[in-house]
Design a protein around this nucleic acid. Structure first.
Length: 162
DNA sequence: GCCAACGTTGGC
DNA sequence: GCCAACGTTGGC
């Protein structure tokens, strides 16, 4: 990954189930904090990698069809996920505290909503996207880096939808 | 709803 | 430090 992705990664893919949040919700809200991620690899990307202005492919998982539904951008870089500190909260983690936060989140802002979802199946068939993490079998990471080329291909697919 | 793939936990 | 058991993710 060191060679494929430059030191400052500028492009990402973020997954969310429609039951939890959609690109339309983001359109309505303008921005959203991405709390509740409880995976160390995804945490590391949000804590150490994502910077204001980075571009995001918004991906709907467990959807019909699953796929990229729009574009977002990072509007606040990684900061502690305080939802881990409240006992009883669904994202509570007793191993995290304000003094020693274990989990981090970013804020993203709405950029665009695709007229139609770009299904996973289309991503798999599109030349240039062969190495995208999201199309690999068993890929579960909810925050993933993508290359600039991959981002541009998907953005173009989204714009081309009637 | 099924189940394969994956991440985490905990016994040893 | 291994690895089996378990819980979760997410496509289908």
């Amino acid at each position: 990954m060191e060679e494929k992705y430059p030191m400052a990664i500028r492009y990402w893919l973020m997954k969310c189930e429609p039951a939890a949040y959609t690109i339309d919700d983001l359109d309505r809200d303008g921005r959203a904090s991405w709390e509740g991620v409880r995976n160390y690899q995804a945490r590391n990307f949000m804590r150490d990698g994502m910077q204001v202005g980075d571009k995001v492919l918004f991906y709907a998982s467990n959807a019909d069809p699953s796929g990229v539904t729009g574009l977002a951008e990072v509007v606040r870089a990684g900061y502690p996920d305080h939802t881990a500190w409240t006992a009883g909260h669904e994202y509570f983690d007793e191993g995290s505290s304000a003094d020693a936060p274990r989990w981090f989140m970013v804020d993203i802002g709405f950029v665009a909503r695709f007229a139609a979802t770009i299904p996973l199946e289309t991503l798999k068939k599109t030349p240039g996207l062969e190495d995208m993490m999201v199309i690999q079998k068993g890929s579960r990471l909810s925050v993933q880096p993508v290359t600039r080329a991959e981002y541009e291909i998907v953005r173009t697919l989204g714009s081309a939808v009637p």
